[in-house]
């Protein structure tokens, strides 16, 4: 794969000679035909959403990057057998979900409780906080971190399918239909799955709402 697009470069739209936009499935068919630029395009388009999906599934940014790369490697490996029977993103998120769920199962007993302490920078995100800029008082910052920790741990505590559905719905902006396809559920089952998940979150986070 000689010509991977450098980081930060914009995603050039892939268009046909007739000037029509190609679907991701069409672009995947180009990858299948050996077009490495087509693969670069998919990487540039989906690396950010995949890293953020994996981060919320695995709650660790280094692991998230590793898993997101693994998704792309699997896409690349399966290029020869790819059939555009489902929407490209459905296929992509199915690969991602399987990887994330397996990772969570494999490391279930290794993962420490999420803790966000006031004194240390957030190890998981490397995020710098507004505290340093003096925008928040130490007390406000503490409250904010407590709230963040509650959000993470309550999402984490949801049953596996509810958690995956919430992460796809809330953070990946995927609709019921798409989530249903990824999880191989009916649309109505997905609706009630999400409804129950949000009800639980609303109840458990009510002190912060």
């Amino acid at each position: 794969m000689a010509g991977m697009t450098p980081a930060g470069m914009g995603i050039a739209p892939v268009v046909t000679a007739a000037g029509q936009d190609l679907s991701d499935a069409d672009i995947m068919l180009r990858v299948k035909a050996g077009d490495s630029a087509a693969f670069d395009y998919l990487v540039q388009k989906y690396r950010r959403p995949l890293v953020s999906f994996m981060y919320r599934m695995a709650r660790n940014s280094a692991v998230a990057e590793d898993l997101a790369q693994e998704v792309f490697l699997r896409v690349y490996r399966s290029r020869n057998t790819y059939e555009p029977s489902a929407k490209f993103t459905t296929w992509l998120y199915r690969i991602a979900t399987n990887l994330a769920v397996n990772h969570a199962r494999d490391t279930r007993y290794e993962r420490p409780e999420v803790s966000v302490s006031l004194d240390e920078p957030d190890e998981e995100t490397g995020t710098t906080f507004e505290l340093r800029d003096g925008k928040l008082t130490a007390e406000q910052e503490m409250v904010r971190r407590e709230r963040l920790q509650a959000i993470r741990s309550k999402v984490e505590a949801l049953p596996e399918r509810q958690r995956t559905a919430v992460i796809m719905h809330k953070y990946q902006q995927m609709d019921y239909k798409q989530i249903a396809e990824v999880l191989k559920l009916s649309e109505s089952a997905t609706k009630s799955l999400l409804f129950r998940a949000y009800e639980t979150l609303r109840e458990q986070l009510k002190d912060f709402i």
């Binding site: 991977m4 697009t5 990487v43 890293v51 792309f72 995100t125 959000i151 953070y171």
Partner: peptide, 21 residues
Amino acid sequence: TMALLDEWQAPEPSPYFDIRL
């Protein structure tokens, strides 16, 4: 509830993402 959940931000891919991939 949705607004509260918005506070959980995800990091951007690191500058090494493409190189490692």
